[in-house]
Computed example of a mutant assay.
Amino acid sequence: MAFDEGLAERVRNLLHDQNNVVEKKMFGGLCFMVSGHMLVGVLKNELMARVGPVQYDEYLTKPHARKMDFTGRAMTGMIYVSPEGLQKDPDLKFWIDTCLSFTSTLTPKS
């Protein structure tokens, strides 16, 4: 499984104070789950971000964001952020916080 270990470590550092964080290898990369829900993933050198369906179109207008089309079909609520959009820690933190905001609206899974 090839994914950017440095990016994964940066994600871990930003999630260090969150409860119920689980790492799971999937999609050929590493996913971070919070309370049983997929939050973000590291696929190769990109971030897979679960932003949710409501503001999906808005987040697609952000620099370096694009539709997640892992299966050949776009998955509403999920986007990829290219490495250029993740170089600075505040940029990565923006995406992590955005995803935490969405997943906090979901009922925790057991």
Rank of each mutant, 00 (worst) to 15 (best):
E58R: 15
K25P: 13
T98K: 04
F94W: 06
L47E: 06
R66L: 11
E58C: 10
R50C: 09
S101C: 11
V22T: 12
L60V: 00
M48S: 06
V51C: 04
P63H: 15
Y80D: 13
D89Y: 04
V21P: 01
K93M: 04
S110Y: 05
S35W: 10
K93S: 05
M38C: 01
D57V: 13
P90K: 07
Y59Q: 08
D69H: 14
K24S: 07
R73E: 11
G72P: 05
T98N: 01
P53L: 14
V42W: 02
G85S: 05
M33L: 15
I96M: 06
S82Q: 14
T61Y: 04
V22H: 11
C99N: 07
S104F: 10
F27T: 05
P83T: 09
G41D: 01
K88I: 11
T76E: 09
P90N: 08
H64E: 11
G36A: 04
K25C: 15
W95M: 06
V51D: 01
M68G: 03
D69L: 12
P108W: 05
S104W: 11
A49H: 00
W95F: 05
W95H: 04
D91P: 01
G28K: 09
E46A: 10
D97N: 13
M48I: 13
Q55G: 11
P83C: 15
W95Y: 08
N45G: 10
D69C: 14
H37N: 06
M33A: 10
R73T: 15
L39Q: 02
Y59D: 06
G52M: 07
A74P: 10
G36C: 07
M48L: 13
K67W: 07
K44V: 15
M75I: 11
P53D: 15
G41C: 01
L30G: 00
G72K: 08
M38H: 09
Y56I: 03
D91W: 01
L86H: 00
P83N: 10
